[in-house]
Amino acid sequence: TEEFVRLWREAVRHNQTLHWNGTDFIPGDEWAEEFARREEEKL
């Protein structure tokens, strides 16, 4: 979602874990980066 992408970019900028829907998205984590890339492509 647009909100997820916005929060993810913020988390990456501050190198912080994003807690989203009970899942931890960690900047630099391969799975999280791939998920975020797919979400961005949907926008």
Rank of each mutant, 00 (worst) to 15 (best):
1 T>L: 13
1 T>R: 14
1 T>G: 14
1 T>F: 11
1 T>N: 12
2 E>M: 13
2 E>Y: 13
2 E>S: 13
2 E>A: 15
2 E>H: 13
2 E>K: 12
3 E>A: 12
3 E>Y: 08
3 E>D: 12
3 E>I: 11
3 E>H: 08
3 E>K: 07
4 F>C: 07
4 F>E: 00
4 F>M: 01
4 F>A: 01
4 F>T: 00
4 F>Q: 00
5 V>P: 00
5 V>S: 05
5 V>M: 13
5 V>F: 08
5 V>N: 05
5 V>A: 04
5 V>Y: 06
5 V>R: 04
6 R>H: 09
6 R>T: 07
6 R>G: 04
6 R>D: 06
6 R>N: 08
6 R>W: 10
7 L>T: 01
7 L>K: 09
7 L>P: 00
7 L>Q: 09
7 L>C: 14
7 L>H: 06
8 W>P: 00
8 W>E: 01
8 W>D: 01
8 W>H: 01
8 W>A: 01
8 W>R: 01
9 R>Q: 11
9 R>V: 06
9 R>D: 06
9 R>E: 09
9 R>H: 13
9 R>G: 07
10 E>M: 08
10 E>V: 06
10 E>N: 08
11 A>S: 06
11 A>P: 00
11 A>Y: 05
11 A>N: 00
11 A>H: 05
11 A>W: 05
11 A>F: 04
11 A>I: 02
12 V>C: 02
12 V>W: 06
12 V>I: 10
12 V>A: 05
12 V>E: 04
12 V>Q: 10
12 V>P: 00
13 R>F: 13
13 R>G: 06
13 R>C: 15
13 R>H: 09
13 R>E: 12
14 H>D: 11
14 H>P: 00
14 H>A: 14
14 H>R: 15
14 H>Y: 14
14 H>L: 15
15 N>S: 09
15 N>P: 00
15 N>G: 14
15 N>R: 10
15 N>K: 12
15 N>L: 08
16 Q>C: 15
16 Q>P: 01
17 T>E: 03
17 T>C: 14
17 T>K: 10
17 T>F: 06
17 T>S: 08
17 T>W: 09
18 L>K: 00
18 L>A: 03
18 L>I: 06
18 L>T: 01
18 L>V: 06
18 L>N: 01
19 H>R: 13
19 H>P: 03
19 H>E: 05
19 H>V: 10
19 H>L: 07
19 H>D: 03
19 H>Y: 08
20 W>K: 00
20 W>Q: 00
20 W>S: 01
20 W>M: 03
20 W>R: 02
20 W>D: 00
20 W>H: 04
21 N>V: 04
21 N>P: 01
21 N>E: 11
21 N>Q: 15
21 N>L: 13
21 N>R: 15
21 N>T: 03
21 N>F: 13
22 G>Q: 05
22 G>A: 06
22 G>S: 06
22 G>L: 04
22 G>H: 07
22 G>D: 07
22 G>M: 05
22 G>C: 11
22 G>K: 05
23 T>M: 15
23 T>V: 15
23 T>C: 15
23 T>L: 15
24 D>G: 03
24 D>Y: 12
24 D>P: 08
24 D>E: 11
24 D>R: 08
25 F>S: 00
25 F>H: 07
25 F>G: 01
25 F>P: 01
25 F>I: 03
26 I>R: 14
26 I>N: 11
26 I>A: 12
26 I>H: 12
26 I>V: 13
26 I>G: 04
27 P>K: 02
27 P>E: 01
27 P>R: 02
27 P>D: 01
27 P>A: 03
27 P>N: 02
27 P>L: 04
27 P>M: 03
27 P>I: 04
27 P>T: 02
27 P>Q: 03
28 G>R: 03
28 G>Q: 03
28 G>K: 03
28 G>N: 04
28 G>D: 03
28 G>E: 02
28 G>P: 03
28 G>A: 02
29 D>W: 04
29 D>P: 03
29 D>V: 10
29 D>R: 04
29 D>G: 03
29 D>M: 08
30 E>L: 14
30 E>I: 13
30 E>P: 15
30 E>S: 13
31 W>Q: 08
31 W>L: 06
31 W>H: 06
31 W>V: 08
31 W>N: 06
31 W>I: 07
31 W>R: 08
31 W>A: 09
32 A>K: 01
32 A>E: 00
32 A>F: 03
32 A>G: 03
33 E>H: 10
33 E>N: 07
33 E>M: 11
33 E>I: 11
33 E>K: 06
34 E>T: 09
34 E>H: 08
34 E>W: 12
34 E>K: 09
34 E>P: 01
35 F>Q: 04
35 F>M: 06
35 F>V: 07
35 F>W: 10
35 F>H: 06
35 F>E: 02
35 F>A: 04
35 F>T: 03
35 F>D: 00
36 A>C: 09
36 A>Y: 08
36 A>G: 06
36 A>R: 02
36 A>T: 03
36 A>F: 12
36 A>D: 01
37 R>N: 05
37 R>F: 05
37 R>G: 04
37 R>P: 00
37 R>C: 14
37 R>Y: 05
37 R>H: 07
37 R>I: 05
37 R>K: 11
38 R>W: 06
38 R>I: 09
38 R>V: 09
38 R>T: 08
39 E>A: 15
39 E>W: 13
39 E>Y: 14
39 E>R: 08
39 E>N: 08
40 E>M: 15
40 E>A: 12
40 E>D: 05
41 E>N: 11
41 E>M: 14
41 E>G: 09
41 E>C: 15
41 E>K: 13
41 E>I: 12
41 E>H: 11
41 E>Y: 12
41 E>Q: 14
42 K>P: 02
42 K>A: 09
42 K>G: 05
42 K>H: 06
42 K>M: 08
42 K>W: 08
42 K>D: 03
42 K>N: 07
42 K>F: 07
42 K>V: 05
43 L>F: 09
43 L>N: 05
43 L>M: 11
43 L>K: 04
43 L>E: 04
43 L>G: 04
